[in-house]
Design a protein around this nucleic acid. Sequence first.
DNA 1: TCTGGGGTCCTAGGACCC
DNA 2: TCTGGGGTCCTAGGACCC
Length: 414
Amino acid sequence: MSDAPAILHADLDAFYASVEQLLSPALRGRPIAVGGGVVLAASYEAKAFGVRGGMPGRLARELCPQLQFVPGHYQEYQALGDQVIDIVRDFTPLIERISIDEAFADVAGSIHLFGPPGEIAAKIRSRTRNEVGLPVSVGVARTKHLAKIASQVAKPDGMIVVDPATELEFLHPLPVDLIWGVGPVTMKRLHGMGITTIGELAATPGRSLEHLLGRAIGSKLEALAWNRDLRAVEVTHRAGSVSAQSAIGRQDATEALIATTLRHLADRVATRLRAKNRAGRTVTARVRFADLRSVTRSVTLPASVSATSVLAGIAADLVHSALADHPSERQISLLAIAVSHLQDEPALQLELPFELGDDDRRPGTESGAARWTLDRSVDQVRARFGRNAVAYASVALAGNPAVPDDFRELAQKD
DNA sequence: TCTGGGGTCCTAGGACCC
DNA sequence: TCTGGGGTCCTAGGACCC
């Protein structure tokens, strides 16, 4: 037997802020923001004043003088997000987690056990409210894209089930920027063509969309506007790249600043690669100048890298190359390192962390294998005693980053 | 609104090969 | 010496997502 397609999209409302209000009843019903220098998340009460995630704290305070900033409880976010996913998992194993607070679930095969999709969605919502204490919005539809749009329309704390017989009646009156993949630039272009609703988008010939927006985006938007995108829920997902970046205000591009920052970034990226038993062949460095324009330089190597010092050295070469191409830029505001073209790299030497190779004892030489082994031993010490148990000397002195490391961890997609 | 951090996908030109 | 066409990889930039 084959059940009719039924995709569910669950999306926790103002997630970080809702967790803070859950943990501290005094914050409930009040405009709050997680973060300080920058707003990481805003409660609905704060959003009513125009406060948004990513907004500078100073601006948020201007918009909402009574806004209360709270420090984040990052471990709680991860644990509570996982709890909600586990509730969804009670209804189906076919789950695609998009981020810490959002997931698709294919519930077509669950209907004979748990009832129609609308009932499943209602149960997920009530259990999340009762067992976890958080509001979650849910959309249900025949396709992923429509389910996601439905959950956005249902927010806050609501649910929408889109009947397959009337899905275009639901979809077409909605604004185009609700479509996944339509951001500020594309929306402006569409508005320039007189297209403001998804229905108007659907009525536009695919040829003209492809002409204006490019082949891929044009044909994708046409498919989405007619709800013809039938991609399945993808349960397993492997990252294609690992990256880290650091905004540093506006500073002179000194050798010391570059070396220290890249060391820190390479340490973050390489540690995560090794933790996944992965390594990558392509290294990309990004430099953002004082005026926020940025350039990238990349190199694809014959062999993959996951050793911290090797990565830091390659990134330094790339950054210097980028700076050499822009000699008039004296100041930089951000550095980033990314590693892509990832391959599996089994941790063969994991059990022998302190048996460094002979070449390590010879003065002046440090082989890639020896560096890798050294990195692995640092990883192990950190696993037992915490991240800060081992730090590179120059990095340890670098001072407090604008964004807590715990928050960075959450931004990763694993 | 002058802007944090980790990702994905697409485009376009050039090098190189058959 | 001049020339067609297709495929793949690499690099740089940009839009977008959470």
